[in-house]
């Protein structure tokens, strides 16, 4: 019998991990102890970063890739996938994250962008990338650059779900319109969305993005998770919402259970009881920096 030849870093393998994270919760953690709490609560993956978005907002200054030592510490603390963030366009940070063997790289607007024109050429990497998007055009541009998972951006670090809802609705709403469009209209859609025509045609044909779509930016309660899952998200990223709340372990587990049972209000009600204070929320109009405006 011929011995099987292993092919690594293929699109199927890179998008495949995103498929495995569906119906789950990816939690921001800043150290090994938080990572263990997240895994204990049933997180499908953790995102290793130096400061959660609400602290990045508070502290100001330039936010960069985390210290490799801290990422290594989190990797050895848990058995679930570990993601880490690189700045938009900062391919050298991404190269370092690949050499650290993180499982997914988030080219993230939560960090300060390194390039105001170009995102990372993600086809050049064997590690898969997730990128944020506020609308369908942005999502398809990121996919054309090689992203294997899209997360709607929302407004990170606010504990306010309104932008997450705006972005996921914008993406799923435009997908529904594309499905209705005739073949001639698709050319105009490609122009308006500033996205490659073949991807527009693929979405019109299949009625979905070519990669999974998760939701991020403002999720603070089990009800928030249920809301965005019902709006079409396939998983949720929770940043400051867990470790800036009064009882992170309980809230984390409640959000995990609400994500699985997102359409069962009895179950979401049950896990929402007595969780203590949620993270403090911020009004979008009072923000100094809109992180979701970063990315092109």
């Amino acid at each position: 019998m011929n011995e099987a030849v292993r092919e690594t870093g293929t699109q199927l393998v890179k998008r495949g991990l995103a498929e495995m994270l569906k119906g789950g919760v990816i939690m921001d953690v800043v150290d090994a102890e938080q990572a263990r709490i997240a895994e204990d609560a049933g997180a499908a993956a953790v995102m290793a970063l130096e400061r959660v978005p609400s602290d990045i907002r508070k502290d100001g200054g330039v936010a960069r890739m985390s210290d490799p030592e801290m990422i290594e510490g989190i990797k050895s603390a848990v058995t679930i996938p570990v993601m880490a963030k690189a700045r938009i366009g900062h391919f050298a940070e991404a190269q370092i994250l690949q050499s650290l063997e993180v499982d997914y790289i988030d080219e993230s607007e939560v960090l300060t962008p390194a390039d105001e024109t170009h995102h990372i050429d993600k086809w050049a990497f064997e590690v898969p990338f997730v990128c944020g998007a506020t609308n369908l055009g942005e999502a398809l541009r990121r996919i054309s650059e090689g992203a294997c998972l899209i997360r709607s951006k929302g407004e990170a670090g606010t504990g306010n779900i309104v932008e997450a809802v705006r972005h996921i609705r914008s993406i799923t709403g435009d997908i529904r319109k594309l499905v209705q469009a005739d073949s001639a209209e698709l050319f105009d859609w490609a122009k308006r969305l500033q996205s490659p025509l073949p991807l527009i045609q693929e979405v019109a044909e299949t009625g979905r993005l070519p990669v999974p779509i998760f939701c991020a930016g403002g999720i603070a309660t089990p009800a928030d998770a249920s809301l965005v899952m019902q709006l079409g998200a396939e998983s949720v990223f929770v940043g400051s919402g867990i470790f800036k709340s009064e009882d992170p372990a309980r809230r984390a587990q409640a959000i995990v259970e609400a994500t699985t049972n997102f359409s069962d209000a009895d179950k979401v009600a049950k896990v929402s009881r007595g969780l203590g204070e949620a993270m403090p929320g911020l009004e979008i109009e009072n923000l100094e920096t809109r992180l979701s405006d970063r990315g092109w």
Partner: peptide, 17 residues
């Protein structure tokens, strides 16, 4: 053995008989 083939970088495709 969980993740016995390694982390995501070691994930692979192969033809199976």
């Amino acid at each position: 053995r969980r993740n016995g083939y390694g982390r995501q970088l070691a994930s692979f495709e192969a033809d199976l008989q």
